[in-house]
Design a protein around this nucleic acid. Structure first.
Length: 361
DNA sequence: AAGACGGGGAA
DNA sequence: TTCCCAGTCTT
């Protein structure tokens, strides 16, 4: 069912004028800045993005620089932000923009949509915010805010629900300030009509037309089915040290944490005795084996339960599965050159603080 | 239509 | 713990 949102636009714009947060990409909405920020903001909170955005723009100030940067440097700039394919797709798109659009990001919704990493939401956001095109930009905030105003308990994971909201917004989006209107809905969702906990309805500019408020159904909206439980995976992480260097290897180019660096290990939990037997059978002569604790890392769809060992080696064996394709890197190199995901942070810290104290991050 | 894909903040 | 975030891509 489509819904008539009436005179919602001026209330939102006025509220936005007085309450919009000051953000670097909002302060200077160059297409490149809006683009980079929107990619970083996918499934990621504003607070988490701020620092990454500033550092990224400083390192790669324009599309040309992004198109040409080495992948390891790109991933290092993205380290800890998650969803690493966003970084790779961003660069792929930059290369297309350089090749096909003379280095200028196009402002047309469908051209944007054709670029890697830019879906319906992001295409709408860039087109409206950076190019003043009257196109909707529907993210989780917009869905939540609009469905609460309409008092609708529709399952928002259904495609038809988002499509219908798209046409409802197309009808009311102001031609003179489409980007501000889209942002006002998202800002309201982030600051007032929040997803977890009680929304701050006393300070909502559209509370007088909000059906969920008047019908007391805010807790029921947005309506979405429960998620499935995560899988659990056991792992043993080996911090192998040889002559003040540490073994790291590159993960494969697809799947989880694709292309990032990690410590070698096995996909099962080994106790000290099992580990010793394993190392012996692999011809690894260990001078010293030190358990360095357990760690758990929760991804959206899987949990890693890890146990770590610090292993000082006497010599390098000729061939061993654990050392196949590893490189040996010093502490400072690991810190500055190799993107290691946060899942390994417990064990990376063990290296970084192994000797004298070092100032990290 | 469902699953893969990170990490962290808040309740 | 659970939820979910300025979502997109693959299967």
């Amino acid at each position: 069912m489509s819904y008539d949102y009436g005179e919602i636009v001026p209330y939102l714009l006025t509220w936005f004028d007085y309450n919009a947060r000051i953000l670097a990409w909002r302060d200077n909405p160059k297409p490149y800045y809006v683009w980079v920020s929107e990619i970083m903001l996918q499934q990621t909170r504003v607070e988490a993005v701020k620092g990454y955005f500033d550092r990224f723009i400083k390192a790669l100030p324009n599309i040309q620089a992004l198109a040409e940067v080495e992948e390891d440097k790109l991933l290092k700039l993205w380290e800890g932000l998650g969803y690493y394919n966003r970084a790779r797709n961003l660069q792929k798109a930059a290369q297309i923009v350089v090749r096909d659009y003379a280095g200028e990001l196009p402002g047309d919704y469908h051209m944007l949509l054709s670029l890697p990493g830019i879906g319906e939401y992001t295409a709408g956001a860039i087109a409206s915010i950076a190019f003043q095109k009257p196109v909707p930009a529907i993210d989780g905030n917009v869905l939540r805010v609009m469905k609460r105003i309409a008092g609708s308990t529709d399952d928002i994971t259904r495609l038809s629900v988002k499509k219908e909201l798209w046409t409802d917004i197309e009808r009311i989006i102001p031609k003179d300030r489409p980007g501000d209107f889209n942002q006002s809905l998202m800002e309201l969702g982030a600051m007032v009509c929040v997803p977890n906990g009680k929304p701050d309805c006393e300070h909502c500019p559209v509370v007088h037309i909000c059906k969920a408020f008047h019908e007391d159904t805010i807790a029921l909206i947005p309506n979405k089915p429960a998620k499935k439980p995560r899988k659990k995976e056991e792992r043993t992480i080996l911090v192998l040290e040889y002559q003040d260097k540490y073994a790291i290897r590159r993960r494969k180019q697809n799947g989880l944490l694709a292309g990032l660096w990690e410590f070698p290990g096995v996909e099962m939990k080994l106790n000290l005795k099992e580990l010793k037997r394993e190392l012996t059978s692999q011809g690894i002569l260990a001078a010293e084996i030190q358990p360095i604790g357990d760690a758990k890392h929760i991804f959206s769809h899987v949990e890693w339960h890890m146990t770590g060992y610090h292993i000082k080696m006497k010599e390098l064996p000729n061939n061993s599965p654990y050392l196949d394709s590893v490189i040996w890197a010093g502490r400072n190199e690991i810190l500055s050159d190799y993107s290691i995901p946060n899942a390994y942070e417990t064990f990376r810290k063990n290296i970084l603080f192994n000797e004298e104290n070092l100032n990290i991050k």
